[in-house]
Design a protein around this nucleic acid. Structure first.
Lengths: 187, 187
DNA sequence: GGCAAAATTTTACAAATGTTAAAAAATGAA
DNA sequence: TTCATTTTTTAACATTTGTAAAATTTTGCC
C-alpha cells in the first residue's frame, strides 16, 4: 500500500505539504514475531503499515489481552507516547512479516508548528482515530460477543483467516472456549 | 468553571488566538432533563460544561445504554457530527441544571484553516479525547465490573453522589442488580 | 507422506451475571 | 410530617460464561 495513498486517506494534503511530510518517512521491514513497540518505553516513531498485520496487547496478571489489530493502511503507534510523551501500556507484536513506513514523532511535531496543512492533517488523524475508538467502545458496551464476532466476520473476514483464534477471543473480550462455542452455533 | 481555564487546559493558546476563539463562544443554560443532543441529528455546536453534569446514551432495543458522563470542564459533543458531519448515535441528557459554553463548529472549522495555533489546539483536543477514550476501552477490556466501579469510586466519587445507580450500572456495562451486589460486597 | 508441535474444539463442572419480582429505603411535593 | 413515587436492595432461579482437561484437527518441517 502506497504512502501517498495512506497519507491522503487521512486527510488530503496540498502537494507541497505532502512532499514535506513524505520526505520524513522511511521504509523498514521486520519479521513475524518481532516486538515493534514495548511497554514501558517512550516510543519516538509512529508507523504506517504497508504490508502485514500486527496486534497490540497488554499484560493483565498472568495472561495478555489483545485490544487492537492493524493491517495494511492502518497506523501503528503507542498512543501514550504520541500524545503525552509517556511510556505506553502496550506491546505491539507483528503477526506476519511486515513492511512499514516509519515517521519520527519529533520531526512530525515540528512540522505541526510550521505548516498549517500538516497541523490540520494531524488533527484529522487524531479525530478519525478518535471516532474509530469511540465506535469500538460503544460496540463493546452494546453488542454481545456473538454480535461482535459476527461484525468481525462481516467487516474483516481476512483478519479471521490471518489471526489465530486465541487472539481474536482476547480481542472480543471472551475466552477461546466461548469463541469456539459461538463459532459452532453460527455455522 | 471559566472558559479561559477550559480552553487552556486543552492546549495553551497565544493570547491573540485565544481571544479569537473566545469571541466565538456564547453562554447558554438549560434545565435538568433537557435533551441537548439528539440521535439522528447532525449537531452544529459543541459545548464546554461550565456547571452541571450530563450523560450520553444510545438505545439498544428496549433499553438505553449510558456510555459517557461529563461534568464541569468536560467537552460535550456528538463525535460523529464533529468529525464526520454525520448524524450521531447518541442522545445527551442533562442530569442537572447546566450552564454551558457553546461553540459553533462551522466557525471553529474556519478558524482551523486560518490560524495554525487554533489548528494545533484542535489537534490536541482530539488527541486528548482519543487518549481518554482508548484508556476507557482498555479498562473495559481488562478490568472486571467490580474493579471499574472501584476506579470510579476512587477517581470520580462525586459522580456516584450525583448520578443515580441505574445510569452508573449501565455505564459499567452491568445490570443494576449486579451493581447492588458489588456495592454490598465492597462496603 | 508422516510426525511432532501448535491450535482449536469439546466436555463437564464451577462461578458469575442476568431476569423477574418483591421488599426496603430514599426522595419530593402537598 | 405524611403519602405517593422513585430508587435501591434483596431474593430465587435461569442463563451465560469461565476453568481445566482431554480429544481432535491443523500446521509446519524433515
Amino acid at each position: 500500500m502506497d504512502i501517498d495513498f495512506i497519507l491522503d486517506k487521512i486527510h488530503i494534503l496540498p502537494e507541497a505539504s505532502k512532499s514535506t511530510l513524505r520526505a520524513c518517512v522511511t521504509e523498514v521491514e521486520y519479521s513475524k514475531g518481532h516486538i515493534l513497540l514495548r511497554t514501558e518505553k517512550i516510543e519516538t516513531s509512529i508507523y504506517f503499515i504497508k504490508k502485514g498485520i500486527a496486534r497490540a496487547y497488554a499484560n493483565r496478571e498472568a495472561n495478555e489481552v489483545t485490544f487492537w489489530f492493524g493491517k495494511e493502511g492502518d497506523t501503528l503507534l503507542s498512543m501514550n507516547s504520541y500524545v503525552a510523551n509517556k511510556k505506553g501500556y502496550e506491546d505491539v507484536e507483528l503477526l506476519e512479516d511486515c513492511e512499514l513506513y516509519q515517521l519520527k514523532t519529533d520531526q512530525l511535531q515540528s512540522l505541526f508548528d510550521s505548516d498549517i496543512n500538516i497541523a490540520n492533517w494531524g488533527r484529522k488523524f487524531a479525530e478519525k482515530e478518535l471516532l474509530k475508538t469511540e465506535e469500538r467502545l460503544i460496540s463493546r458496551q452494546f453488542r454481545t460477543a456473538t454480535e461482535r464476532y459476527a461484525d468481525l466476520l462481516q467487516n474483516n473476514p481476512d483478519l479471521l483467516l490471518r489471526i489465530q483464534l486465541g487472539h481474536i477471543a482476547s480481542y472480543l473480550g471472551i475466552t477461546q472456549v466461548s469463541l469456539s462455542r459461538i463459532r459452532s452455533e453460527i455455522k
